[in-house]
Computed example of a mutant assay.
Amino acid sequence: MTERQQAWIPEPVQRGRVLVLSDNPIARCIAAIASTVGRTVLVESADDGGPGLHVQQGDAVVLCDHDAPDAPAVLRAALASEAVYVAMMASRSRAAGLVEELVAEGVDVSTLHVPAGLDLGGKAPGEIALSVVAEIVAESYGRSGGAMRG
């Protein structure tokens, strides 16, 4: 009898946390999906980055509110940290001013994912969150997140 091979592992490799700022429908969906795939999630509801957003090595940081008062400081700190993924929810045009501000300050934004997520085409909070978590997982495995079919 041939042993069946499974296409999955019983438990995912432990990865960093997913830190999400701030609390809104997309953030709550990111928390639900990321938790389902085995990630520890912290949603910080304070628009100013709050006391709980202390980035650790291997964390993923997702800014779900580009209009948060402390968005530049949150991104500045996350991009300077040992986070493996830093992203912001915003269209390229909406984020342009904030990105330009960071570049003018000398911040390296080359690793900033904006807009956050893979291009799945979804518009609902859960669909957007799925694209963000998929991008976090792809990044953590050094993958592009493209289709698997040849």
Rank of each mutant, 00 (worst) to 15 (best):
Q5M: 09
S93D: 07
R94G: 01
A83H: 04
R94C: 02
A73W: 00
D67E: 13
V133K: 06
D65Y: 02
V41E: 07
V55Y: 07
V18L: 03
Y141E: 15
L98E: 01
A134Y: 01
I136Q: 08
L63D: 05
G121R: 07
A71Q: 05
A138G: 09
E44F: 11
L112N: 08
G38M: 08
V74Q: 11
E44V: 13
M148E: 09
Q6A: 14
R143K: 14
E139H: 13
H66C: 11
E105W: 00
L42I: 15
G117K: 04
V20Y: 09
E44C: 12
V133E: 08
E139D: 14
A134I: 03
Q5V: 13
R94Q: 04
H66K: 06
G49H: 06
A7I: 05
S144F: 00
E100I: 01
N24W: 01
D48Q: 12
A31S: 14
V37C: 15
G122Y: 08
Q57M: 09
V107F: 00
P115H: 02
Q14C: 09
Y141Q: 15
A73K: 13
G117P: 05
V86A: 06
G50H: 09
I30E: 06
A147Y: 05
T40L: 10
P12N: 10
T111F: 00
D65N: 15
R39T: 09
S22G: 07
A78M: 06
E44N: 07
M1W: 05
D48H: 10
K123Y: 01
S45N: 13
A90Y: 01
P125D: 09
Q5I: 11
E44L: 06
G142A: 10
R15S: 10
P72M: 03
E82A: 15
S35W: 02
A80W: 00
A87D: 04
V37D: 11
R76Q: 14
R143C: 11
H66T: 04
V109P: 00
E135G: 11
A138P: 02
H66N: 08
A95T: 02
E82T: 05
M148A: 14
V37T: 15
A138M: 09
G150C: 07
S91I: 00
M88R: 07
Y141W: 05
E135N: 13
A34S: 11
V132I: 15
S22H: 10
P51F: 06
D47K: 10
E11A: 14
V86T: 12
A129C: 08
V20D: 05
S110P: 02
I33L: 15
P10H: 03
D108S: 10
A32F: 01
R28V: 15
H54K: 13
A71R: 09
P72R: 12
M88G: 04
A87I: 02
G97Q: 05
I9F: 01
V37N: 12
G38E: 09
M1A: 14
R143W: 04
G106D: 07
